[in-house]
């Protein structure tokens, strides 16, 4: 009898634990509260500007850079690629809702048929494969430009990532992304959250550290350091390498789950990509 009671307690504990961890909206609200308590003068939408929300000097330089946006060429090239028909006569516009214009906020989402998170970049390649075209590389070139153009047409739209509560796989993908964000990795033994939550706003070498909120609003990004536009997953890889963790592949399942979590944390913010960063 006692044993059964124990088992019940344990079972309830497990149930309760799972329940307690699986509330994305509570997670997001907790983060909003956390940052707003620490930085009462920073407006919520300001987090979409990353470290420039905290750093007045860097912000001025950044605004100057934005006068002649270095990602403009990528947008123009992306538009051209986007409108160039495939060999079969169809095009990207045929693959996406609203002809692919102003739809970045629909990504990432959990695709029930596939059982996985689909990011915009993955969807671009899915579109190509469905039309008998070769997949494009994820880290640079044509695909990044197309992504930049599609972001540009979506500026000002509100991020509203959905996690279907009737599909436990969607919640599991979100949880996996959350675990990634809060797990220490690499020889330096840092979690994403160590830098971007606890240390947000503080300086690391030449940079202030951006906050988790807003980290997913503005991709792809032109970085002076890259001399090019790059995707969110390219940034993930660099942040892995910084702590001497071997970076995962762009568009790996793990990174897509991470993007799912991170984008959910940016819910309620406006898309403002592409953007520029140092």
């Amino acid at each position: 009898m006692i044993r059964i009671k124990y088992m019940l307690v344990i079972a309830c504990g497990i149930l309760f634990a799972d329940f307690a961890h699986a509330d994305p909206e509570a997670d997001r609200q907790a983060l909003v509260n956390y940052y707003q308590n620490r930085f009462p003068n920073v407006e919520l939408q300001e987090y979409a500007n990353g470290l420039y929300a905290f750093d007045e000097n860097a912000r001025e330089q950044w605004l100057e850079m934005e006068d002649f946006p270095p990602y403009e060429i990528a947008i123009e090239e992306g538009e051209e690629y986007f409108n160039t028909p495939f060999a079969n006569g169809k095009g990207y516009a045929d693959c996406f809702e609203s002809g692919g214009i102003g739809i970045r906020q629909n990504y990432p989402h959990f695709n029930a048929a596939l059982g996985e998170v689909v990011t915009l970049e993955l969807a671009i390649n899915q579109c190509r494969k469905a039309n008998a075209e070769e997949a494009l590389p994820y880290l640079e070139g044509e695909l990044v430009a197309i992504s930049a153009y599609m972001s540009f047409t979506s500026r000002g739209n509100m991020i509203d990532v959905q996690i279907q509560d009737d599909d436990p796989r969607a919640l599991a993908a979100y949880e996996a992304g959350k675990q990634f964000y809060y797990s220490r990795r690499g020889q330096l033994n840092f979690a994403c959250s160590n830098c971007h939550a606890q240390s947000a706003g503080s300086s690391l070498r030449a940079d202030r550290l951006s906050a988790t909120l807003g980290q997913a609003t503005h991709w792809p990004v032109y970085r002076s350091k890259w001399g090019d536009v790059g995707t969110l997953h390219k940034r993930f890889r660099e942040c892995n390498e910084q702590v001497r963790a071997r970076p995962l592949e762009a568009q790996s399942k793990e990174f897509r789950n991470l993007e799912y979590f991170l984008s959910y944390m940016s819910n309620g913010l406006e898309l403002n990509g592409p953007a520029s960063r140092r």
């Binding site: 997670d27 907790a30 797990s183 220490r184």
Partner: peptide, 17 residues
């Protein structure tokens, strides 16, 4: 060791209130 340790303890690090 890190992977196993993190799998068991990452929850402690989550900002939850």
């Amino acid at each position: 060791v890190q992977a196993d340790n993190e799998a068991a303890t990452w929850h402690d690090r989550v900002i939850s209130e």
